[in-house]
Amino acid sequence: MELSVFNIKGEDTGRKVTLSDAVFGVEPNQHAMYLDVKQYLANQRQGTHKSKERNEVAGSTKKIKKQKGTGGARAGSLKSPVFVGGGRVFGPKPRNYSFKLNKKSKAAARISALSLLARDSKLSLIESFNFDAPKTKEFKSILSNLKVEGKSMFILSDVNQNVVLSGRNLPKVKIATANDINTYDLLNTDKVYLVEDSISIIENLLSA
C-alpha cells in the first residue's frame, strides 16, 4: 500500500511511500495481539501484594476458652481467621507475573497491530523533524497543524532528546522509537504518525 508523506505543517509533500505488505498488509492475528498485550500488562505488575496469615499475625496463642461445654464452636487461638484481627486464609503473596512469549509471536503481534492501523486508516507518514531545544509549544503547534484529535503516537527512527522532552508532558501523546514499539501502545491510540526514516527500520526488524 502507498501512503502520502506530510510535513510538520500538515501539508502534503506530493511524495508517496510504498509500505511492505509483509508488515503493513497482513490479516491481523487476534490471538497473537492478545498474548503480547497480556504479557506487556503482566510485566507492569509489581507483584508486591502481601497479607498476613495466622502464623504471622501478632497475638496470644493461649487457648481462649475451654474445649467443651460453652455451647459454641471450639476455638484455640485469637489468630484464627474466623476472628476479627486474625490471619487471612490463602491471602496474596509476592509473586512474579511475567511469562515467556516467543519472539516470532511478538513480531506477529506487532505486524498485526500495524496492519490493523493501516487497514483502518489510522496510520500517517510525516517528514523527519527536530527542535533546536525542548519546546512543548512547538510540539503542540505540530499537533494543531496535523489536526490531531484524541490519543496519538509518534514513532521516530532513533532517540531524539529534544523531541521526546517536548512531547512528554502532553497527556495524550506517546513518543517511541522504531526499535521500541509494542503492541499495547499501537492498539491504545487513535492515530499513529510514522516518521519517514523509521519505516525501513520497522520493516527490517519485523520481517527478519
Rank of each mutant, 00 (worst) to 15 (best):
S4V: 14
Q44D: 03
A109S: 02
D180G: 06
F129P: 09
I142H: 07
I142E: 01
N96R: 13
G10M: 01
K63I: 06
I111D: 05
R119L: 11
D21N: 12
K122W: 03
K66F: 00
D190Y: 06
D180T: 15
S144D: 14
S200W: 03
V148R: 00
Q44N: 14
I111K: 11
A73R: 15
A73W: 04
K140L: 09
H49W: 13
S77T: 11
G69K: 05
F129M: 10
F6K: 03
K103A: 15
F99T: 10
L156P: 06
P81C: 11
F129S: 11
Q67P: 00
D36I: 03
V23W: 09
Y97G: 01
N160E: 11
F24H: 03
K65F: 07
F83V: 04
G25C: 10
N179H: 14
A75C: 02
K137D: 13
E53G: 10
I199H: 09
N182Y: 06
N188F: 00
S77V: 00
N182S: 08
K174C: 10
G91T: 04
K140Y: 05
V164E: 07
P134V: 08
D120I: 14
F154H: 06
L101V: 02
F90E: 13
F6R: 01
L186F: 05
T61C: 05
K50N: 10
I181V: 14
S51Y: 06
A113G: 03
V84S: 12
V159Q: 10
I155H: 04
N160A: 10
V84E: 04
A107W: 05
A42D: 07
S4Q: 04
S207V: 07
I199W: 01
K122L: 02
G91F: 05
S157F: 12
P92I: 01
A113R: 05
I202G: 01
V26S: 06
K52C: 15
L3D: 00
L78T: 05
G69M: 09
A208P: 12
G69D: 14
L206T: 02
I126P: 11
K62D: 15
R74G: 04
L187R: 01
S207Q: 08
D120G: 02
Q67T: 09
K66Q: 13
K62L: 03
A178N: 10
L156E: 02
D120L: 13
G69Y: 03
S77N: 03
V17E: 02
F99D: 08
L170G: 02
H49Y: 09
D132G: 13
S121N: 07
T13K: 07
I199Y: 01
I142K: 06
R15M: 11
L156V: 07
A107Y: 02
A133L: 03
D21T: 08
H31R: 14
L101C: 01
F129V: 09
M1R: 15
N29L: 08
T18E: 06
T183D: 03
S166G: 12
S20Y: 08
K52M: 02
V89I: 14
K65T: 00
N96H: 12
A22L: 15
F83W: 13
L205R: 12
Q30R: 15
A133E: 07
V5Q: 02
F6H: 14
T70C: 04
